[in-house]
């Protein structure tokens, strides 16, 4: 029945289209243009930071990676978070996070990886416990695949080492990335990220979770994080080269 249904459906649409189309109507898709691409004249990191602030997020541009760790520590203290979850990424290898996992009045944990041989999760039970843990987390720390200067957005691709929940379930989301990840415009994202790079979920996050449903007053944190911090580390050429090396050895 489904196959017949599909045939009927498409046949009906074909007829409907033929009804109004005229011979000589343009058949080919429109050529791509980058019309409306923003022209950013200040440097990208500064532009990103001000766009993020406009969207209600909090930006932190730092001059080197060594400043990231103390800053992160301050942010976690200020958040009052007790249950801190981190997704994995090459950014972690640039930081000394010993203090995070060993000391402090909190529990910090990395999202687990699937069994390395099979790529599968062990059992459904484990997954349920994990789900509980993730729902209980109050600070989520992630990297960022890209940042968009035009809009102040953080872009994350779902991967086994970068689950969706970390940027979604906690009250506070902190994203950490180096300055080479900043793209000027939304158009650039669709250029650097090709269809072949897509995973099950690509999320473009622009500011904290918001609702205007209560008398049109903006309230944050109705479903997702009420605060989003983005730490952008400027890097020298040497560091960028190191980044390339590091990313090739990332787990």
């Amino acid at each position: 029945m489904t196959a017949a249904n599909r045939q009927n459906f498409l046949e009906r649409v074909r007829k409907a289209v033929a009804e109004v189309n005229r011979p000589g109507d343009p058949k080919l898709p429109l050529p791509h243009t980058w019309v409306g691409r923003s022209k950013i004249d200040s440097d990208l990191v500064t532009a990103f930071c001000s766009a993020l602030q406009r969207a209600g997020g909090i930006s932190h541009a730092v001059e080197s990676w060594s400043e990231v760790s103390p800053l992160l520590r301050r942010l976690i203290h200020e958040s009052g978070g007790k249950n801190i979850v981190l997704s994995r990424g090459d950014w972690q290898q640039r930081l000394d996070l010993d203090w995070l996992f060993r000391h402090g009045p909190w529990k910090a944990w990395l999202t687990p990886l699937p069994c390395s041989d099979t790529g599968e999760w062990d059992s459904a039970n484990d997954n349920d416990a994990l789900k509980r843990q993730l729902f209980a987390a109050d600070v989520g720390i992630t990297g960022a695949d890209w940042l968009i200067a035009e809009t102040g957005s953080v872009v994350l691709l779902s991967r086994p080492d970068q689950p969706r929940s970390v940027s979604l379930l906690p009250r506070v989301h902190i994203a950490i990335a180096e300055s080479r990840r900043v793209l000027p415009d939304l158009y650039d994202l669709f250029n650097v990220c090709s269809p072949a790079d897509l995973t099950a979920n690509l999320i473009i996050i622009t500011g904290p979770s918001k609702t205007g449903d209560i008398e049109l007053k903006l309230v944050t944190g109705v479903h997702g994080p009420e605060q989003i911090h983005v730490i952008v580390a400027r890097e020298t050429t040497e560091l960028s080269e190191r980044a390339v090396l590091l990313s090739s050895t990332a787990p």
Partner: peptide, 8 residues
Amino acid sequence: PLSVYTSL
């Protein structure tokens, strides 16, 4: 410029 969450 964008909604908060654009899921692809």
